[in-house]
Write a protein that binds this DNA or RNA. Structure first.
Lengths: 254, 254
DNA sequence: TGTTGACCTTGACGCTGCGTTAAGGTGTAT
DNA sequence: ATACACCTTAACGCAGCGTCAAGGTCAACA
C-alpha cells in the first residue's frame, strides 16, 4: 500500500504540512517521488512516522527524535532520561511560578492598605535585593556563611507588618543617607545613623549579622555598577559615601 | 537621574535589546530621545520596568503585561487568575508527560524480549486504538456507555503479558481477515472467525462488550477514512468486508 | 587634534514547529 | 470541457528576544 501526503497524514492524524516539514528537515523522507513530483510513502515510512509521533508525544524536540530514529545505535534510554530531567526541572519552575502567582493574587485581593504605588516601590527594592542575592555569592565565599540563602527564605516569610517595617526602614536609610551625603562627612553623626539604619534594614534579610559581611556589602555597592547606579541615582557618589560610612561604623576604618 | 539603554538595562538586569524591543512593541517607551537619537529613560520608566519585570517573572506574556501596566482600571487580579488556570493546566500536562516518559524508560530498560520492531508495531496499533478512543465519542453517545473511558484506563494497566496477548490477537485478526477477504464471503467461516477474534481483541479495551457497540465500531471503520485507510492498507475493501462480517456475527444482519 | 574604544542607532535574520495563504500544476469524474 | 480535489514550492507569521552588521556619537587619551 502506498500513500500520498494527505492519505498518510489522515492515517496518522497529522497535517500534510507537517509531513512536508518532516521531509524538509530530513526526519521523514518519502519512499519516492512520482513523475508529477508527488511524495509517495510506503510501509516503512508509516512505521517510521509512528515512532516519530510517539516520541513527539513525549515532548521531545524533533532534533532529538531525529537522532533516535536515524542513528541505529543511539542511546535512546539515555536521551529519554535527560529529557526527563528537563521535564522535572520545568515542573519545579512551574510550581514556583504558580506559588508566586497565587501569592500575588492573594495580595491583590486581600491586602487593602497597599496602594499600587507602594507595592511597586516595594518590588523595586526587591529587585535590588535580588541583585544582592545574586551577587551575594561573593559575600558567601568571603565569609563562608549561608546568610545569603537564608535571606531569601526569610524574605519569603515576611509578614505584611514586616514588609511595611522594612519598606519604611529602607526609605529612612535613603533619606538619612541623602542628608548625610550633603554634609560630606562619612564619620559624622548623620552618616553613622544612616549606616546604623542600613544595618537594621540588613538584619531583615540576613539571619546573622557580621561586621565583615556588612563592610563587604558596602564595598560591593561601589564595585558593582548595578548597586552604584541604584545608590547614585539622586546624587552621584552616594554609593562610595555609604561604603565609607559603613567602614567607619563597623570599625574597619577610622 | 537619567539613564541610557545600557544603564537602565544593567540596573534592571536585562539586555539593552530587550529595552529596544519593549520600546518597539510600545510596552515601555523612553521618556525622551536626545539630539543624537539616544533613548533616555527617567524615574517613571524605571518604575514601570520593575512592574513589567515582576509580571514577566510570573510568566505572563508581554501582551497581557502591556494591558496590566497601561490600562489604569484593568482587572489585574482577574488576568492573574486566568493565568493561574493556564499554569495549572500546563502542570497537569507536564505530569502526564513525565509519567509517560518514565514508563517508556522502564520499558526500554526492563523488557528484554521486545525488539524495536515489535515494540513499534505495537505502538502503531496503539495509535489506531487512540483514534478509536477519540472517535469512540460517537459510540459513547450512541450506546450511553462509559466503555470508552474505561478502555483507556484498562490499557494503561495492561501487563506485559496482556500486551503480548493483545498484539498477537491483533495480528491474528489481520491475518484471518486477509484470508477471509479472499473468499469474498462475510458470512463464511473464516470471516466469522475474524469477527470473533476482533471481538476478543476488543474486550481487551472495552470493559463491557455489547453487540450494538461492536457493530457500531464496524460501521465506523467504513465511515471514518482513518480506519478505512488502516484496514484497506493491504487490500482495499477490507474495512467494508469486516463491517459486514461483524454485522452478521452480531446478528444485526443476515 | 586625531584616534581609539565604548557606547548608541536601525535593520534584519535566526530560533521551534508548524498554520496559513498564494500561485500554479495534476488527476479524475462528470 | 469543466469542475473539484489534490499536489507542488515559496513565503510570511507566531514570541521574545540573541546576535551580527553597518554606521553614527561621545569621552578620553596621545
Amino acid at each position: 500500500m502506498e500513500y500520498t501526503v494527505q492519505k498518510l497524514a489522515t492515517l496518522a492524524g497529522v497535517s500534510s504540512r507537517t509531513l512536508r516539514y518532516y521531509d524538509e528537515i530530513g526526519i521523514l523522507k518519502p519512499a519516492r517521488i512520482n513523475s508529477s513530483g508527488y511524495r509517495i510513502y510506503g510501509q516503512d515510512e508509516v512505521d517510521r512516522l509512528q515512532q516519530i509521533l510517539f516520541y513527539r508525544e513525549l515532548g521531545l524536540d524533533l532534533d532529538s527524535i531525529k537522532k533516535m530514529v536515524t542513528a541505529p545505535y543511539f542511546d535512546g534510554a539515555q536521551a529519554l532520561k535527560e529529557h526527563r530531567e528537563k521535564l522535572l526541572e520545568k515542573r519545579q519552575q512551574l510550581d514556583a511560578l504558580i506559588a508566586n502567582v497565587e501569592k500575588t493574587i492573594a495580595t491583590k485581593e486581600g491586602r487593602i492598605t497597599m496602594s499600587d504605588q507602594e507595592k511597586f516601590e516595594g518590588f523595586k527594592k526587591k529587585l535590588v535585593e535580588d541583585n544582592e542575592h545574586k551577587y551575594g555569592e561573593e559575600i558567601r565565599q568571603k565569609y563562608g556563611d549561608d546568610q545569603v540563602d537564608q535571606s531569601n527564605a526569610k524574605m519569603m516569610n515576611m509578614s505584611q507588618e514586616d514588609y511595611e517595617k522594612v519598606t519604611k526602614l529602607a526609605n529612612q536609610v535613603n533619606e538619612t543617607l541623602a542628608e548625610a551625603f550633603k554634609t560630606g562627612d562619612p564619620a559624622g553623626e548623620l552618616a553613622q545613623k544612616a549606616a546604623d539604619l542600613h544595618k537594621q534594614w540588613l538584619t531583615f534579610y540576613w539571619k546573622e549579622y557580621s561586621k565583615e559581611a556588612h563592610a563587604g556589602l558596602g564595598q560591593m555597592y561601589v564595585d558593582d555598577e548595578r548597586f552604584t547606579a541604584y545608590y547614585d541615582k539622586e546624587q552621584p557618589g552616594t554609593a562610595e559615601f555609604l561604603r565609607d560610612a559603613i567602614l567607619i561604623y563597623t570599625g574597619m576604618k577610622k
